[in-house]
């Protein structure tokens, strides 16, 4: 990635668009501290991404394209594990299961779940951390209409608590109403940065395709 500079204020949602291999996932993984920048840097709520990575991890939750769940554990056990690793062993797992619509399959092993249900589990694992920076990479994959609404609810909840959300997706039409700003990438470089309000749908479509 090169020349990517942005400031994301609290209570706001950044939509990251761009064609395949444009650097969307890389950007999210950098913000999540899964990758270290070779040059340049950044901070999350005042914490440096490299020097203060653990403090960033406390504030951040990342939902990647894979659920990061264990096939042989049940949905409930996976969620309880995520809660324990987040330092919240007493988190109300049953409430979270209910909130994301996983109660009927709570005691099923993850290996029998559909991709949409696995995606809901990944969202729940991130949501229960009450993150201040929520990073969603292609969050709509496999989700039905209720699942899409769940992403919107999660986004709203995070911003209402003073947090920020970064959503990288090809399905940018779904986020248009929630996003405050857009960062369009092509080959690791920004082709468009700015408030959503200043862009037309045609501008966004062009930016999502990597064209200025």
């Amino acid at each position: 990635m090169r020349d990517v500079t942005f400031v994301l204020p609290p209570h706001s949602v950044l939509l990251v668009v761009g064609p395949n291999a444009s650097g969307k996932t890389t950007l999210l993984r950098l913000l999540a501290t899964a990758l270290r920048p070779t040059d340049g840097g950044g901070s999350v709520f005042g914490h440096d991404l490299v020097r203060d990575a653990d403090a960033v991890r406390v504030l951040t939750a990342f939902v990647g394209t894979s659920a990061g769940a264990y096939d042989l554990l049940t949905v409930r056990e996976n969620l309880a594990f995520a809660a324990a690793m987040r330092g919240r062993p007493d988190a109300p797992v049953a409430t979270w299961l209910d909130r994301v619509g996983l109660t009927p399959v709570a005691d099923d092993p993850v290996r029998v779940l559909s991709s949409g249900m696995k995606r809901r589990l990944a969202l729940a694992q991130a949501w229960l951390a009450a993150p201040r920076l929520l990073l969603l990479d292609e969050p709509y994959g496999g989700l039905d209409r209720d699942g899409v609404a769940l992403v919107a609810e999660m986004t709203e909840d995070t911003t209402r608590r003073g947090g920020s959300v970064v959503i990288a997706t090809h399905e940018w039409e779904r986020v248009m109403n929630e996003a405050d700003a857009v960062l369009a990438l092509a080959a690791g470089q920004p082709v468009e940065v700015g408030p959503v309000a200043q862009l037309t749908a045609a501008d966004l479509a062009a930016a999502a395709g990597g064209r200025r």
């Binding site: 993984r29 999540a32 653990d54 991890r57 990342f62 894979s66 990061g68 264990y70 096939d71 330092g87």
Partner: peptide
């Protein structure tokens, strides 16, 4: 194999 390593490493703490 479970594609869980990245999430495991992103949990806060030592």
């Amino acid at each position: 194999d479970q594609q869980a390593l990245e999430i495991l490493l992103l949990y806060p703490g030592s």
